[in-house]
Design a binder for these strands. Structure first.
Length: 548
RNA sequence: GUCUCCGUAGCUCAGUGGAAGAGCGCCUGGCUUCGAACCAGGAAGUCGUAGGUUCAACUCCUACCGGGGACUCCA
């Protein structure tokens, strides 16, 4: 690709000047087009080494670069403190179009940087004692999109959900169901939601409340997740850790390593020795485990199944990270291979007013209600709009609006518009010729070039987004591509078919929009959002054709 | 008090040490020939404050200010 060409040319120029170029020569696409298509800081980075000022060094480097006659380069300037700016002919972007079409929707943006590596992404992991709420939704969609993003870079990904299916909260849940079944209020600290009453009503008389309730809650969560297109490869039961002795084994191992001690009748983990701010109880004075203990065994188990682990946790669990990392280190795992992604809170708004109440669960809004109200596509896309590091305001009214201030609509509409043009071309008899026969050099309009420029950035976006564990970057990019599509589509000089458009130009533009469509569809697919061929609902379409 | 996330345009938020961004809102313009749920242009910034590192800091480091969250032998 173009970067490699430019980098090797820069490296050669540096060598000719007797300089040692940095391992990674700085090269970027300046935001400001006046600064050329590509810009390098090589002279700035090596001027000290050269013992001269950056601009003078840049002058010598440019003289050398010009003598190299680099492909696609039509001019090299020196700017500012000593940047070397390359101006390129459009031909380099025409190569991009070909490349995009060749990779197709399946492989657009994909790379193999992590091929052969296994990674386990654990997310949701909500107690199986009730429905998922809107807060879970953010972690659920983030985790699923992150998993897809990691697959995009070659990882073999396991999507996993941990089930806290033993312990006191399960008993509390069962007791609450029993109480409601008997027509009583749950005891203090019990589950008070309306769903407990509903479920108690469904529960057969002879059912074991704990087992029946567990199955009921789990099914509810699975249905909610399925409606969002989320499926797990592994549902990992905490009970299995008791049954196979993994918890006892982990405790034994920690004991052998001197990582635990007894005090006050309880067993403590020396987590302060590995970065925690206090030691943690593993076995309480009454002999039962704390929440942490099975979880340690669980994470240790995951390390046996994947090279790298990612956990998606809510902000309320951030304090839990140091003790888990400490425990993993004490069990001989690489703490840096456990990456915990923390999602900040979500506020739900509807037309400027905060939404706090759900239909069934009372003081929480259920994820299933949210999905039903705004649809799976808008739910996913909206959750993914922002970095998980920022608190989010999720506006339900905006998510369903059919206007460009709704990013979901704006982006999907770009895909539908391309389909509309392609259909119109087909109706007009403009059959797309094979790519090799199309004259892409006709694509010179500013809007066309901008589209190609954005498409070029796709693969790098994927690299960065995966490295940063940041699906929201994918969303940002696809919105940018959608904007470029709308801008191209709208421009009077950029019609794909028309009396003023030569058949050759029509062909080039048909391929251009197909490339853009590939970029949109590939990216939306990875985000788990559909790339529709039409924005009209079936009913609206039916109504229209009846009206004709 | 400790930990953590956030602080960038009026609002909601992007921003990978390199030359300040998007959408909304506001102002202006664009469908009597195409494809206006859209597009184009404009106004709007002490990047919380103060230091430090660097040729270069919104970005890294330190301290402070303001806001959210977490700090159980709960889960």
């Amino acid at each position: 690709m173009i970067q490699e060409q430019l980098r090797s040319a820069l490296a050669a120029a540096a060598t000719a000047e007797g300089l040692t170029a940095p391992d990674e020569i700085g090269l970027e696409q300046p935001a400001n087009r006046d600064h050329g298509d590509w810009s390098s800081n090589l002279a700035l980075a090596t001027s000290k080494q050269a013992g001269t000022n950056p601009r003078e060094l840049a002058g010598r480097l440019v003289a050398n670069l010009e003598s190299q006659n680099i492909a696609h380069v039509e001019g090299i300037d020196i700017a500012g403190p000593g940047f070397i700016n390359f101006r390129l002919t459009n031909s380099w972007l025409h190569d991009v179009l070909t490349h995009v079409v060749e990779t197709g929707v399946e492989n657009f943006g994909a790379n193999t940087a992590n091929a052969g590596k296994t990674i386990n992404v654990e997310f949701v992991s909500a107690n199986p004692t009730g429905p998922l709420h809107a807060g879970h939704g953010r972690g659920a969609v983030f985790g699923d999109a992150l998993a897809a993003l990691l697959e995009w870079t070659g990882y073999e990904v396991t999507r996993e959900c941990y089930l806290n299916d033993r312990g006191v909260q399960m008993q509390t849940f069962a007791d609450s169901l029993s109480a409601r079944k008997a027509g009583n209020e749950p005891a203090d600290g019990g589950y008070m939601g309306q769903y407990i009453i509903d479920w108690a009503g469904e529960m057969p008389d002879d059912a074991d409340p704990l087992e029946w309730g567990y199955a009921r809650a789990l099914q509810d969560q699975k249905d909610t997740l399925a409606a969002l297109g989320i499926e797990f490869d592994v549902w990992f039961s905490e009970r299995s850790l008791v049954e196979n002795g993994a918890i006892e084994t982990a405790l034994e191992t920690l004991k052998e390593r001197g990582a635990i001690y007894d005090d006050d009748g309880a067993t403590w983990l020396r987590s302060t020795e590995f970065g925690d701010d206090k030691d943690r109880v593993l076995v309480k004075a009454d002999g039962s485990y704390t929440y942490l203990t099975p979880d340690i065994a669980y994470h240790h188990d995951k390390f046996g199944r994947a090279e790298e682990l990612v956990n998606v946790w809510g902000a309320d669990h951030h304090g839990y990270i140091p003790r888990m990392k400490a425990a993993m280190e004490m069990l001989g795992n690489d703490r840096d291979k456990l990456d915990v992604q923390v999602t900040q809170m979500v506020r739900l708004m509807r037309g400027g007013e905060e939404v706090k109440m759900g239909k069934r669960a009372g003081n929480i809004v259920e994820l299933s209600d949210l999905t039903e109200e705004v649809g799976a596509d808008a739910t996913r896309f909206t959750y993914l709009l922002q970095s998980i590091d920022s608190q989010q305001t999720f506006d339900l009214a905006l998510a369903v609006s059919q206007a460009k201030d709704n990013p979901v609509f704006f982006t999907q509409y770009a895909h539908a518009r391309i389909r509309a043009v392609q259909n119109r071309a087909a109706e007009a008899g403009a059959e797309r010729v094979p790519l090799k026969q199309a004259d892409l050099s006709l694509l010179t309009h500013e809007r066309e070039i901008e589209l190609l420029r954005v498409l070029f950035g796709g693969p790098e976006m994927v690299e960065v987004a995966a490295r940063e564990r940041a699906p929201h970057r994918v969303v940002g990019w696809v919105r940018q591509l959608a904007a470029a599509v709308h801008s191209f589509y709208q421009h009077k000089d950029c019609y794909v078919i028309g009396d003023n458009v030569s058949p050759e130009l029509t062909q080039a533009r048909l391929w251009l929009i197909e490339a853009a469509r590939i970029g949109l569809a590939a990216t939306l697919n990875r985000l788990g959002v559909s790339a529709p061929d039409s924005m009209w609902s079936d009913e609206a379409e039916a109504a229209m054709s009846e009206g004709e």
